[in-house]
Structure formats: structure tokens, C-alpha cells
Design a protein around this nucleic acid. Structure first.
Length: 428
RNA sequence: GCGAGCGUAGCCAAGUGGUUAAGGCAGUGGAUUGUGGUUCCACCACUCGCGGGUUCGAGUCCCGUCGUUCGCCCCA
């Protein structure tokens, strides 16, 4: 076939499913609004260096998953593989920290990672996320988690698990890292190939390995939680007791190590059993070092991102896609009648009604059939007779009741029409 | 980047080496002229993702390629 198709790992979101997207976006927007988070919209591409520095050279995201290219000015450009680095860059660039001590921000849009597609994983996918910049309070961590759980709850998603861990601060982690390397090095030969590789690059990730032999070795490894200093310990304890106070269930997962370098203290992940291998629906944590690392004043921050496609995979298991049905379906035959019908439809739309207009001019039989399928409770009928009289037929499709009145009267009395429509729609 | 499965119309599919590629849904036209949800009839793939090969003959076997699915890896 010579026709052009969407690139591997990209997808068109078509009318039949777009209702899910609008549902997710509307709920997220609502929840963020109630918590006074403001939307930010950073650019889709940035200087490559921003992500390399922000996310960490050693991570897979930077090492092998970025969409990087040179533009015509020979600049190295990267399509964002996540939002956080861009949001923080904007925060620094526009001195948002000087406008208010605490910035509560949210975002949504496409991100890009060059990966092998599979269920719940694409090259262009969409994230919705939150960043709370400027507070190191445990309550900030919990606020952000609570917003995530609110969104998931309002979407009606059940059987989700919240995993929680603390990766401590930089020096906690450095000490632990050393202890872990010391522990693992004697076992080096017995680790799986990937883990051997990670021993020097990113040893904490070895804890997460699914290889059974590696798992067995890791079983007796020192625990990160034992290496937390007093500060980190206290922060983690407070996060837990606040979560409990909010009635948010969680489980401590000492092996939860977020992939990106910038995390510190709290790390969390929300997973579902109904998604196969790509089980994580929301991931996030605290990243107190990032703002400083990107050239801003040292500023604590915490945030998360959700994968919209994964949310929708779960929603599909629960409900049909919301669709917008017309309230009125308008049929007509003949040039004069069609012209009048079009005017009528236009005026009804301006009066706030959802009106679908049949363009076919086909036999009323066909048009009525489409009216029926459209789901509209009311069909307006204009033929030659009505055109001459200046009237319009009103056919209520559920009861088959049909009346006629003048077009002028109909428009005069849109309010009672609306009431009848509301009644008809509530009793389908 | 690695491993395995799959790829027939808009959708769901039968077909597994032999003349014209089942069926269903949707769509279009019709069953007396201006009225729906039922029914009936007709039409709707010169072609089986694409390219090459084996064979007298391929949707059906082989190779490649692209896509997709499921794992690994990684992450949302």
C-alpha cells in the first residue's frame, strides 16, 4: 500500500473515543481547580541539554529513548519525554518563585519516548501532571498525592494500589549506594546481565529486577530505609501519618526506586492489576534538587505524572465512551423547506440547543431513520407544506407523538421546548 | 535494543495448496407518492499489510519488510 499511515507508536484519537479524553481532562481540570492549581503549557520541544541535565544522563529515558534531532540552525532539539524539566525551566526563567512562595501548577499534553510500543506504551503518549514548587512540607507531598487519588476516584477507577517509599536525600542515598555496591559486588557473577550493567551506572535499580536469581540475592541486601538520616526519617513518617489522616491507603515498597535521577525523599507510584505489564498509572515524588540543578535557587518541589492512555484503558473496562447526542434532529425536503429549516436550526443552536441538521435531502423515511439513530428525542420536520404555511412538524421519537406549530411560535417559546427536552432525555 | 504470536472489506470474522475469496454488523439503493426503530430484496474485497520466492497452481508454504499484540528492558 502506498498510502501514508500514522507512524509507529502514534495513534489517532478518533470521534468514537475522544469522549474518554474529554472526560479525563474535565475531571482533572475540575480537581486541580478546587485545589487552586494553575495550568501551565510549556513548549513541546526544548534544548536537549535541559533533559540531559534534568533527568539524568544515566537514565534510559535520556540514554536511549529521546527524540532528538538538529534543527535548521544546528541546535540539538528534543521532543519532551516528560514535563517536569520543562515546567521547572519555565519556573526559573520567569521567576515564578518571586511571585509567590509556593507555586501550584498542573499540565497536560503529549510526550515522546522512542520505545518499542506495547499495550499502554506508545512513542507519543499523553500525560497529565502536577508540580508543587516551593514547599518542603510533608503536607505538600500529601496534598499532591491526594489530588492524584481524587482524580482517579472521580474517574471511578477502583482496585488501584498506592506504593510509597523514601529515597532519602542526596547524602543518604550516596551512603546507601556505596553499601549496596559493596554488598552486590561479591555476587556480581550471579546477577542477570542487565543488573551487572547497572551495578556501576544505576545500582538502586537492581533492587527492582524481575530476574529470580537477582531477586534472591537482593533479598538480603541492605535496606534503603535503614540509611535514612533523621531529617529524611521524620519527613517520611509525617507523610505517612498525614496520608492516614486523609484515609488514603498505601503500602510501603522499599524496592520502589523511581527511574529518574532527580527524586529525593518521597517516591510513589499508583498501579493497577488490569493493565498487564505496564501497570503504572501515576508516578511521582519529591525532587528537591532539580530547581537548583537547572540553575535556579535551591527550591524544594514535589509532583507526579499520570499516563492518560493507561487511564483510558482502565476506563474502557468500566464504561462506554461518553458521546454527545443531539437534542433535536432536523429533517427537510425541497429547497424552500431546507432553507427555512437551516434558519430554524441556526436559531435553535443560538438559543443553546444541540441541533443536528440532515443534509441529504433524501426521502423522509431515510432521514427519520437517521433521526432515530442519532438518539435525539425530538425530530423537526419541514417539507413543502410546512414551508408554505411557515410551520414545522415536531415529532417526539420516543412517544411517536407529532404536533405542528408555526416556526415563530417555536422560537418564541424555546424555554418550554427545553423543558420538554430535558424531561424526554431523563426518561429514555 | 532482544524474544514470541498475529496481519482477510469501515468493524467482527470463515477459509490452512486447487475452478468465481463464506457469514454477520455498519453503509448505499429499493419493497406505490412526505415519516423512524421490525421485516424482505439488491449492491458493497479483480483480492487476502507490502515486496520477493517455491509450485502447474498460494490468502493458505518460505524469506524479507512494515505494522500490531504479548513478554524482557524501561516508564506514565
Amino acid at each position: 500500500m502506498g498510502t501514508i499511515k500514522a507512524l509507529r507508536g502514534t495513534r489517532d484519537i478518533l470521534p468514537g473515543e475522544v469522549g474518554y479524553w474529554q472526560q479525563v481532562e474535565a475531571i482533572a481540570r475540575g480537581v486541580f481547580g478546587h485545589a487552586l492549581y494553575s495550568e501551565v503549557r510549556p513548549p513541546i520541544f526544548e534544548q536537549t541539554d535541559l533533559f540531559a541535565r534534568g533527568i539524568g544522563e544515566a537514565t534510559d529515558v535520556v540514554g536511549k529513548e529521546m527524540y532528538t534531532f538538529s534543527d535548521r540552525g544546528d541546535r540539538s532539539i528534543t521532543l519532551r519525554p516528560e514535563f517536569t524539566a520543562g515546567v521547572v525551566r519555565a519556573y526559573i526563567e520567569h521567576n515564578l518563585g518571586t511571585k509567590a512562595q509556593v507555586q501550584r501548577l498542573w499540565y497536560g499534553g503529549p510526550v515522546f519516548r522512542y520505545e518499542r510500543p506495547q499495550a499502554g506504551r506508545q512513542r507519543q503518549f499523553h500525560q497529565i501532571g502536577a508540580e508543587l514548587i516551593g514547599s518542603d512540607a510533608p503536607a505538600a507531598d500529601v496534598e499532591v498525592v491526594a489530588i492524584a487519588t481524587n482524580i482517579l476516584q472521580q474517574l471511578g477507577l477502583k482496585s488501584l494500589r498506592l506504593d510509597l517509599n523514601s529515597v532519602g536525600n542526596g547524602s543518604d542515598r550516596a551512603q546507601y549506594r556505596e553499601a549496596l555496591i559493596n554488598f552486590l559486588t561479591p555476587h556480581q557473577q550471579d546477577l542477570d546481565a542487565d543488573s551487572q550493567d547497572r551495578l556501576t551506572r544505576n545500582p538502586l535499580r537492581i533492587l527492582d529486577s524481575k530476574d529470580p536469581k537477582t531477586q534472591a540475592i537482593v533479598q538480603d541486601a541492605p535496606q534503603l530505609l535503614d540509611y535514612l538520616g533523621d531529617e529524611s526519617r521524620r519527613h517520611f513518617d509525617q507523610v505517612q501519618s498525614l496520608l492516614t489522616a486523609l484515609g488514603i491507603e498505601y503500602q510501603i515498597n522499599p524496592r520502589l526506586v523511581r527511574g529518574l535521577d532527580y527524586y529525593s525523599h518521597t517516591a510513589f507510584e499508583i498501579q493497577s492489576d488490569d493493565l498487564g505489564a505496564q501497570a503504572t498509572v501515576c508516578g511521582g515524588g519529591r525532587y528537591d534538587g532539580l530547581v537548583g540543578q537547572l540553575g535556579g535557587a535551591a527550591t524544594p518541589a514535589v509532583g507526579w505524572a499520570m499516563g492518560v492512555e493507561r487511564l483510558i484503558l482502565l476506563l474502557e473496562q468500566l464504561q462506554a465512551a461518553p458521546v454527545l447526542a443531539p437534542e433535536i434532529y432536523c429533517v427537510s425536503q425541497g429547497d424552500r423547506a431546507t432553507a427555512q429549516a437551516l434558519v430554524l436550526a441556526q436559531q435553535l443552536r443560538q438559543a443553546g440547543l444541540r441541533v443536528e441538521f440532515d443534509l441529504s435531502g433524501a426521502a423522509f423515511k431515510k432521514q427519520l431513520k437517521r433521526a432515530d439513530r442519532s438518539g435525539a428525542p425530538l425530530c423537526l420536520i419541514l417539507g413543502e407544506t410546512e414551508a408554505v404555511q411557515g410551520t414545522v412538524g415536531l415529532k417526539w421519537l420516543q412517544t411517536q407523538e407529532q404536533t405542528s406549530q408555526t416556526q415563530a411560535d417555536l422560537l418564541q417559546d424555546v424555554e418550554t421546548l427545553k423543558k420538554r427536552l430535558a424531561l424526554a432525555e431523563s426518561t429514555p
